[in-house]
Design a protein around this nucleic acid. Structure first.
Ligand SMILES: [Mn+2]
Ligand SMILES: [Mn+2]
Ligand SMILES: [Mn+2]
Ligand SMILES: [Mn+2]
Lengths: 215, 215
DNA sequence: AACTATTTTTAGATTTGCCTAAATTTTATT
DNA sequence: AATAAAATTTAGGCAAATCTAAAAATAGTT
């Protein structure tokens, strides 16, 4: 399994939300910052190896073997991100790029030992579930802040957007995983929310609310 | 800097013992398990980038920039090996392969933080010195067991051969870094040594003695 | 249904790193 | 010094992963 193949599988997995939905060539190309023709080439190769279902012009989906492989890469990615934050004091907006590299290291023992060192974490620094050795994982049953009614309250358990810019915005406004959040009011005009975050009160735009998960 | 380029620089560095000795094309090819013609190709590329001195048929040596790059890769390799042993309970004969992959991860912050987590180690699990951020390192002033006279004693501070087979031999005979060793006698015929290792006595062949460093 | 726009695939080229086989240069031996 | 052996380089080619440009298929619109 080459690094490129692994990255394609992971991208297809994420675009399909793990289910075996059929994904567009263009969507994959955009996500991977490559050209559709390159995606077609790789689709053929992965189909050859039994990792994706591919019929010309019909889109691409992962086979069971493909899902299994994708999950093992996601597992590595999220374990490494957790390691970087927990053991090396990285901020949660600094880990993704490095984990993109580390996820391709080939050593079963390494990842098992890492899991053990971290005491078998269930969620990564962004609240995303970490698949176990056999691919099983527990997704929080969470809701987008933007979809909850006024008066709702809960604990922040994750973020949808993991970009550095968004995470730094959250840091600046002291929003982090584990923080209790209550919706005090909603602006009808633009959907912006009046929140109570811990002890403080804050206004956040609709766009922000669309990227915060509450439980 | 590609992974392949980094591996060539590291190999040239090791074959030249760090000095700017001129290395044979064939020696590099053998060490890297590749063909001499591939080495020639890479020599041209690295020379182009100012990392090696290369004139046709004259052998290859590292420039100052090349040494600096090689040292930074060696630093990463040895820090990762130390991490694997100290934090993930790998045996010293299991770390090299994985470190071969990890040494190519690109993140200055990662390696600095790893260094810190390990409390700035000076030597790796095989007794080899770990270069600092600026390439400086302290080599033990050590001697090969095979070159010491009868009666000599000291502490095992390193191994020359880091192969799994050799390290497992040492484990089996309870020879490890830090162990006191004394030469009780030497067999004139085959150069094998009668040793006191800790509290035990052992015979080791000349070949073994050629791969253990004492201080 | 016919036409247009979009998506997707094909064809052909490029780069990196490697290979084999042949040519060249250097080194060792008569 | 001539010749043989060994080391090294060149020439040409291949596979992976990408690209551009053109062709083909699908989807959307009058
Ligand atoms: Mn990530
Ligand atoms: Mn990746
Ligand atoms: Mn090593
Ligand atoms: Mn390497």
């Amino acid at each position: 399994m080459t690094r490129s193949e692994e990255n394609y599988l992971k991208t297809i997995f994420h675009l399909g939300s793990g289910d075996d939905v059929s994904i567009n060539t263009n969507a994959i190309a955009e996500q991977m910052e490559t050209k559709p023709s390159s995606v077609t080439d790789m689709a053929k190769k992965l189909a050859e190896k039994g990792l994706v279902n591919y019929k010309k012009y019909q889109g691409i989906s992962l086979t069971d073997a493909g899902v299994k492989t994708a999950l093992s890469i996601v597992r590595k990615h999220r374990l490494w991100e957790t390691f970087l934050v927990e053991k090396l004091d990285f901020a949660w907006d600094e880990v993704h790029e490095v984990a993109e590299q580390l996820e391709h290291i080939k050593s079963e023992k390494l990842i098992d030992k890492l899991d053990q060192l971290l005491q078998f974490p269930k969620y990564d620094p962004h609240g995303d579930p970490i698949p176990g050795k056999n691919g099983e994982f527990q997704e929080h049953n969470k809701d987008l802040l933007s979809e909850l009614p006024v008066g709702a309250h809960g604990i922040c358990v994750g973020v949808k957007d993991s970009s550095s810019a968004f995470l730094q915005y959250l840091d600046k406004h002291e929003i982090s995983i584990g923080k209790p959040i209550q919706i005090l009011g909603k602006e009808a005009f633009d959907g912006s929310l009046h929140l109570k975050i811990g002890e403080r009160e804050h206004m956040v735009s609709h766009q922000i609310a669309c990227n915060i998960y509450l439980k």
